[in-house]
Nucleic acid binder design. Structure first.
Lengths: 196, 196
DNA sequence: GGGCGAACCTGACGAATGTCACACGCGGGG
DNA sequence: CCCCGCGTGTGACATTCGTCAGGTTCGCCC
């Protein structure tokens, strides 16, 4: 029996996914978690064989959680952003499945991963090869993320404890590197690539 | 037996939701659709009692689909945006459930709606009362939506066949009405309220 | 018909933004 | 050791953006 822990912030999706997996005779959902910051404790308590992790959760980011777990992890997310896949691989996850997959694919991925394999969504793997790594430095990312919400330069500078001129330089660099024509577009491009 | 049609763009979520509803003895999922523009034909073919509609789908928006259906509709969406609820009500839907609800709530909503009732998520109804209606005119909305992607004023003007000055005026009005300090923030505010 | 608001447009002005050149300190790799 | 890239900062400049005041044309309602 493969013991699975489910982490997803939407209750209905979590229950539904559990219902779906209950049809698999060799898979058992032993726990459900709705916040990223509760996953580590739940894993310690329930000792699952595989953790299904959503990325966007309250409390803590699924990708950073994955880096702290030493059980096998499958990222199960809505958004097939190339950057997500890359970061997930860096975090040492064993599988990456998008929520548009078939139920059989998910079950197969769980079995494969449990047996020591690695499973990655095909289309995403292809997209990841073409998109390449994030060209932004850590500070540029931070500045772009802070600016994405719609704040002004002064806001970003205040939040990052930087001089406004520096923020402008970072954003300018981000705009150039993403090939965008202004902050908003740069933020959108970085967002869809999973660079933020 | 209550006949249900499921419309959601994510295959796994759709299958999982069907699995969840299969545990309810009086509910039967008779069809699944993955695109908004296929819902009307599927309803004509399968004659469900209730349609579960996601909002954000490829092909066609769930809210506009709802307006064309004369069966009972429950909107089932991730995003509890007040504006979505308002537009859903205008479209004549019978229920509005967020994906963070419990499975029992969803089943209860299906039964209530099938019996002629109306079901609306409590927290969302409260939020909807405080937020109020969308203050933007149709053109302002269009301009803001076109600008949200990150394009420049000239881009928006070209896409809407308007003069750049007019676009600036619309965006300025949108910024004023949303209480934002620039386009990006206005777009974000309108987005979270479901006004776009 | 008169008033009103929305859709369109123009022109002008100040403020914010994007770009560039340049400067300094720091750490890592050749 | 010395260079290079990164983080940090400054100042100047052109462009874009946000605002305002004004104008014309509709259609709708009283």
């Amino acid at each position: 029996m493969i013991r699975v822990l489910l982490a997803d912030d939407q209750h209905l999706v979590r229950q539904a996914m559990a219902a779906l997996l209950s049809f698999e005779p060799d898979i058992e959902v032993v726990a459900e978690v709705e916040r990223g910051d509760l996953v580590v404790a739940a894993v310690a308590e329930h000792r699952p064989d595989v953790v299904l992790l959503d990325i966007e959760m309250p409390g803590r980011d699924g990708l950073s959680v994955a880096a702290d777990l030493d059980v096998k992890v499958i990222i199960l997310t809505t958004f097939g952003r190339p950057g997500y896949l890359r970061r997930a691989m860096d975090a040492g996850v064993s599988g990456f499945v998008v929520k548009d997959a078939r139920a059989e694919e998910l079950a197969a991925a769980i079995r494969d991963v449990c047996a020591g394999g690695r499973v990655v969504d095909r289309r995403l793997a292809a997209a990841s090869r073409t998109t390449g790594a994030c060209p932004l430095t850590a500070r540029e990312r931070a500045a772009l993320r802070a600016a994405a919400g719609g704040g002004t330069i002064a806001d970003v500078a205040a939040r990052l404890f930087l001089s406004p001129g520096t923020v402008r330089n970072y954003l300018s660099a981000a705009i150039r590197k993403t090939g965008a024509r202004n902050r908003a577009e740069a933020a959108r491009i970085a967002e869809t690539n999973g660079w933020l």
